[in-house]
Simulated scan of single mutants.
Amino acid sequence: MVKLFESYTVQDVTLRNRIVMAPMCTYEANSDGEVQPFHLTHYGSRAVGGVGLIITEATAVLPEGRISSNDLGIWDDYHIEGQKKIVEQVHAYGAKAGVQLAHAGRKSTVDGRIVAPSALAFNENYRTPEEMTLADIKAVVQAFADAAIRAQQAGFDILEIHAAHGYLVNTFLSPLTNKRTDEYGGNAENRYRLLRNIIDAIRVKWDGPLFVRVSANEYTEGGLVPEDFIQFARWMVTQNVNLIDVSSGAVVPATISAYPLYQVPFAKTIKIGANVAVGAVGLITTGQEAEQVVQDGSADLIFIGRELLRDPYFPYRAAQQLDVTLEPTVAVYKRGW
């Protein structure tokens, strides 16, 4: 039996299949972080294409936490209406909607002050951030909690915390980028503390499914490897995180040898070691590859990135490759649309 097109339930949210659109920045928002008509077409077309869950791009919890000045935002109530339109468009075509809550940290390119756990620039092309004070940390935790409330008001089904790719939360986790000597630095438990606080703060406001995206391999001597994330994932499970979205890299400049399914073993390591649901991502481009990953138990969900940029109807192509017949997606709009 083909598992890729079986439904998948997380808490009380049921996805029509195991294909997830991975969060990918589009840099199409206006300078105030507001949703544009582009976003409705971009995400709506993937819902029409049969994706089970669409997680929208990194959405900033603070204006200074944007990667660029054209990132989507969720730091203010005025963002709710636009985000709600995305959700309604995705829901109309039978998909579930998730949002990735993010803070860019030292990789922010917006004007003004940028922050990180330690005053270390990503590379010579980036500015050197300020080391965060305890007050800064408290403000970021509150911003994630406030963003969760707005996401709920917009109607999202699932939240994902961005703790990967060298952005703020990731840089606290990594010993390569976190050189603090207070309770937020040093050993693994201290480096996890910011993420712990964010999850706790979100869980006070949000009782729906919660995912966390991680960079499970830093490809640098002294950096984190998948085995390190077993303990992080165990802590996340105790905090009612439902799934770990397993990516890798981009924490520090590094050479990465990428090939089909290259990140899947990282996901499997965390899944088995922490007994947690995981998502696999990275150069998964065919139905056969995706099916292989779920069939052998390496991952529970398949996160598709660039292949869905190339082909919004990837699920139908994957179904053909696996000899599965999918019914055409028919829109169901609320009255008054």
Rank of each mutant, 00 (worst) to 15 (best):
A151I: 08
V246P: 08
R234G: 05
A299F: 00
T26V: 13
A318N: 01
G52H: 01
A47D: 10
F211Y: 12
G223N: 10
Q89I: 15
A267G: 02
M132V: 08
D111Y: 10
F232N: 01
T269M: 10
V251H: 01
V332Y: 09
Q153V: 11
G52Y: 02
L120N: 14
L224R: 04
D182F: 03
N125G: 11
R317S: 00
F144P: 05
S68M: 11
I230N: 03
D207W: 01
Y167V: 05
A267Y: 09
L53K: 00
A164M: 06
I19H: 08
A154V: 10
F303R: 01
N170T: 06
D77Q: 15
N240D: 15
A216V: 11
A250H: 13
W337Y: 14
A135T: 15
V110H: 03
K85M: 12
R113C: 09
R127P: 00
E291Q: 03
Q231F: 12
K334L: 15
V278W: 01
R306F: 10
Q83V: 11
V324D: 08
R306P: 05
I230C: 10
S68W: 01
A121E: 01
L176C: 00
Y262M: 11
D157Y: 10
I272S: 15
A250W: 09
I67F: 06
A143K: 06
E289S: 09
G297P: 04
V51A: 13
Q142F: 12
V264G: 11
P265M: 03
D136H: 07
V332Q: 14
T26H: 14
E189W: 09
E289M: 12
A163K: 07
A201Q: 01
G52R: 05
A258D: 14
A147N: 09
A258F: 12
V225A: 06
H79C: 07
G44H: 11
A258S: 15
G105M: 00
N187R: 02
A119Y: 06
E130I: 13
G49F: 10
L4I: 00
E81V: 13
F314P: 03
A154E: 04
V48C: 14
G208T: 02
V110D: 06
V115T: 11
R191D: 09
M24N: 10
A22P: 08
P260M: 11
G305K: 03
D76K: 14
E130M: 08
T9E: 14
S118N: 07
V276Y: 00
D12K: 15
R106L: 05
G297K: 03
G73M: 04
A290V: 06
T286V: 02
V332F: 12
R18P: 06
I19F: 06
A139P: 09
L195N: 07
L72A: 00
L309R: 08
L301V: 04
P23M: 08
R213K: 14
I86C: 11
L120K: 11
D296F: 08
V141H: 11
Q11W: 12
H79R: 07
F211I: 02
S174C: 06
A216W: 04
K138Q: 15
E289W: 09
F314W: 15
G223Q: 04
W75Y: 14
E28A: 12
